[in-house]
């Protein structure tokens, strides 16, 4: 208590004094904000411009007439298949999240609750695969899935999530290890089997961490381009990133910047939504994973 008062007292005179620094600081931040947000503005404005207007120089700040039709065009134009690709991305992301949450928590539970011969070594192995860059192993993985006949399907993008992700296993294990052993002893006395201890005791307690895992698996899967480029052939099977990249390069003779910006906006919406709905988990996840 006394410490609090002292600090408050110490602060007061300071706050009065160097007001200039805060004015300058806020001004600097305002400038940064304008710089950061102006490309976003450009994106939204372009998405609403007609093909004619989008190429005008200097660019118009506010579209002369709002071409909402651009958004519709994405779904109506049968050559783009945007709706289909959006669905594919959702399918891949949802299954990836489900798979990762399920398998990573199972594995993390195993690592946090049991000692066995080799468990230490195996955990070191988990940690070491955290650094394993995907490009370093993509060729054999690609050959493996191709020989299994899974080419041009969403399965090679989904299946690897069902064996757990090293990072998520690590995160969850750290959390599970904080749960008191007494909790489990009590559960065992009640006659719960090991699987029940995992399912009905541990998982419910881990809600927030699981949410973090889910959010970041979703984002990662949503943005992934390299694996879809390797595995997906036909436009109907594309996920959004590869579909959008293809849209710029080939389906049109003139780069449809307005449609591309509209597509980019729609593609970003799920991530923005998650940020709005679950801001705390979201920020926590960034801090924990450093993920972009």
């Amino acid at each position: 208590m006394s410490e609090l008062t002292t600090s408050a007292a110490a602060c007061k005179p300071r706050r009065r004094g160097p007001k200039l620094s805060s004015v300058l600081g806020v001004a600097a931040l305002l400038i940064v904000t304008v710089i950061m947000l102006s490309p976003l503005w450009f994106m939204v404005a372009t998405a609403l411009k007609t093909t004619k207007e989008m190429l005008r120089f200097p660019p118009t700040v506010i579209p002369e007439q709002f071409a909402w039709g651009n958004f519709k065009e994405l779904f109506v134009n049968s050559e783009i298949k945007f709706g289909r690709q959006y669905m594919n991305s959702v399918i891949v992301a949802v299954f990836s999240v489900f798979g990762t949450v399920l398998s990573s928590s199972l594995v993390a539970f195993g690592f946090s609750r049991y000692r066995a011969k080799g468990s230490q070594v195996l955990f070191m192995l988990v940690l070491s695969t955290m650094m394993l860059p995907y490009p370093a192993i993509m060729i054999p993985q690609f050959l493996l899935f191709t020989k299994l006949g899974l080419h041009d399907s969403l399965l090679p993008l989904i299946l690897p999530n069902f064996v757990g992700s090293a990072y998520m296993i690590f995160l969850l294990r750290q959390f599970f290890s904080t749960l008191p052993a007494e909790l489990y002893d009590a559960g065992r006395i009640d006659g719960s089997g090991e699987f029940r201890l995992y399912w009905s005791l541990t998982l419910p307690l881990a809600g927030p961490v699981l949410a973090t895992v889910a959010i970041f698996t979703f984002i990662w899967s949503w943005n992934d381009l390299l694996a879809p480029v390797l595995y997906l052939d036909s436009q109907e099977n594309f996920t959004l990133p590869i579909g959008m990249a293809a849209m710029m390069s080939s389906k049109f003779r003139l780069a449809p910047w307005n449609l591309l910006m509209a597509a980019s906006i729609l593609a970003s919406i799920p991530i923005i939504l998650m940020f709005v709905v679950a801001q705390r988990r979201f920020v926590e996840g960034i801090v924990l994973t450093g993920m972009k």
Binding site: K147, H151, D233, A246
Partner: peptide, 20 residues
């Protein structure tokens, strides 16, 4: 069966490798 222009060759190659 189809593939986009940019990936036409690589997809063909993989189909052959997959005995497909």
């Amino acid at each position: 069966t189809k593939a986009p222009y940019e990936q036409f060759d690589s997809k063909l190659q993989s189909a052959i490798a997959a005995k497909n």
